Amino acid sequence: MSRFGPQGPRRRYAASPPRSLWRKLLDYGLAILLLGLLILVAARLDRFETRKEQGTAIVNDGDSITLGAERIRMRGIDAPEYQQTCQKAGADYPCGKLARQSLVRLIAGRPVSCSGWQRDRYGRLLGDCKAGDTDLNRSQVQAGWAVAFGDFETEEAVARVAKVGIWAGTFEEPRDWRDGHHDAPVERKHGMLASFGDALREFIRFW
């Protein structure tokens, strides 16, 4: 009978050499480092905790309110600035003031609740706000008194076709109007890319 047997030549396996002391110390060190990183990341998750505010709203303009001591910029929309004017039928009209009036009507004296975790360049909470069952962010865009600013593009398209609010005439994008009237950095839209960037900056700031 062949010494290789019916299955062919037998394979021989050599025992693995024991790990050196330095290799063990390196493995332990890496495990401790990884555990430390996980603990530090967990400790910083408070920066991403969603804040919730509610109460009687003070309406500042068409996309910002104050609840108690918290200033809130409504996320995903951009309304004309309070002093901004737009054009309709060949004449200027105070679209910024009308945008604020629209938000006042939507709230209708009801308590407002807002939630969010990001903040804008002025330190205001970027919030999704409701008065009762009314989604204020969405409704301002639907009424034509705010444009999509990272969200609510479908609602903006419907308002544009219906020619409601500022879409009944011509206007300068609120962001462009601010850039021309205030010496301030350009505001980023509140979309997915901006959210990722904010999260990344929080981690970089920590390190």
Rank of each mutant, 00 (worst) to 15 (best):
N60D: 11
A199D: 10
K163V: 02
A14D: 08
K130A: 14
A199R: 13
D198I: 05
G55C: 09
D183A: 14
Q84N: 04
Q83L: 11
G197V: 02
M1I: 08
L25M: 12
C95F: 00
A99G: 00
D78C: 10
D120I: 01
L37N: 11
L67K: 02
F149D: 08
S115P: 01
R10T: 09
F171E: 05
E153I: 09
E202V: 12
V186K: 12
G169S: 01
Y82N: 02
G144W: 03
R19Y: 02
A91E: 13
G132D: 03
A194P: 00
K189F: 06
I166L: 15
V147L: 10
S2C: 08
E53C: 11
L200E: 09
A108Q: 08
D151Q: 12
V147R: 13
A69C: 04
K130R: 15
I72W: 02
W177S: 12
R73S: 03
F48W: 10
A31W: 09
E53N: 11
L21G: 03
D92T: 13
R178C: 01
I166Y: 06
E202L: 11
V158E: 08
E187Y: 03
Q118E: 13
R19F: 03
V164N: 00
A184M: 07
G197L: 06
T85M: 04
I72M: 02
Q140L: 13
E70N: 05
Q54S: 13
S139A: 15
I58C: 00
D198T: 06
Q83S: 14
E70Q: 15
F196R: 11
A157R: 15
E155T: 05
L103D: 10
D120V: 01
A162V: 00
E49A: 15
